[in-house]
Amino acid sequence: MTKAILICHRGLSRQAPENTLAALEAALAAGADVIEFDIRTSRDGILYVIHDETVDRTTDGRGRVADMTSAELDGLDAGSWFGAAFAGERIPRLSVFLDACKGRIGTYAEIKAADPARVRDMLAARGMLDRAWSFSFDEGIRAQMRARVPDLRRMVLFQHTGSVERAVAAGAHILEFNETNVTPERVAQAHAAGLVTQLFYAGAEEAVFERALSCGVQQMNIDEPDVLRAVEARLMLPVS
């Protein structure tokens, strides 16, 4: 068994405020191979790394990201909600975030509300396309990805496609499972079709990690890297 590629979901969001530069640095310190992050667009067209439609949960402000200017978003505190040590942490502009990732970590961009061609061009300008891929829950954005940015690798969810065949037909490069639908047969079929397999899991149950690793899942999009690595170490121990 080989070690899985570790993807820190929204950065290392158990130790630092999600989708911030602090969460990126924490993910790097934890040995992450890839960072997952979310992208939205301000009222004046600046791309930001933030998950929610509004700033209410993860900053000291209120309102929809799409209704706020970059000046307003740049002034928000995106760290104090998580802990006093992170007071003053900002919502990163995507340009700043990618600059901090360049040459240090792979990138998985979940596009919540942004032009995928702009995201692709920002990655390409930094020479980062070879270690990047994208996904969106928005069907319209997924269609734009297929039509306009074919050189940016795309991920699909098994829960959306329902089969490996439909994932291939959708032009996917990566197929993501979750703890309810990952099976050895589906993972093997995906590998035979040339797809990279991935698991999304926000929990910490060792049995889930063990099952996914035993199925042969190659990438783990998770919140608990220490649990994953502990399970891997146990599975790799020689049988006495």
Score class of each variant (00 low, 15 high):
M1N: 06
L6W: 13
I7A: 02
I7K: 00
C8R: 08
C8Y: 02
H9Y: 07
H9V: 04
R10A: 00
G11N: 01
R14Y: 00
A16I: 11
E18I: 01
E18L: 11
L21Y: 05
A26I: 06
A27P: 01
A29Q: 08
A29G: 00
A32C: 07
V34G: 06
V34D: 09
E36K: 02
F37H: 13
F37D: 01
D38N: 03
I39T: 12
R40I: 07
S42G: 08
V49R: 09
H51Q: 06
D52L: 01
T59F: 06
T59W: 14
G61W: 14
G63Y: 05
R64V: 12
T69M: 02
S70N: 10
L73V: 08
D74G: 06
G75N: 11
L76M: 14
D77M: 12
D77F: 12
A78G: 00
G79T: 00
G83F: 09
A87R: 14
R90Y: 00
P92W: 12
S95W: 01
D99N: 14
A100V: 12
C101S: 10
K102D: 00
R104W: 07
I105K: 05
I105E: 05
T107Y: 05
A109P: 01
E110C: 12
A114I: 07
A114Y: 04
D115T: 10
A124H: 01
A132M: 09
A132E: 10
W133T: 12
W133R: 09
F137N: 10
I141V: 10
R142S: 15
A143W: 04
M145Y: 07
M145C: 11
V149K: 05
P150V: 01
D151V: 07
L152Q: 08
L152F: 06
R154I: 03
R154K: 13
Q159R: 15
H160W: 15
T161R: 09
G162L: 12
G162C: 11
V164W: 11
R166V: 14
V168Y: 10
A169R: 13
A170T: 08
G171Q: 08
H173T: 11
T180A: 10
T180C: 06
V182L: 04
T183E: 12
T183V: 05
T183R: 09
P184E: 10
A193C: 03
G194P: 01
A202Y: 09
E206H: 05
L213D: 04
G216K: 04
Q219N: 13
E224I: 00
P225Q: 08
D226W: 05
V227C: 02
L228P: 10
E232Y: 14
A233C: 03
R234L: 13
L235S: 03
S240R: 14
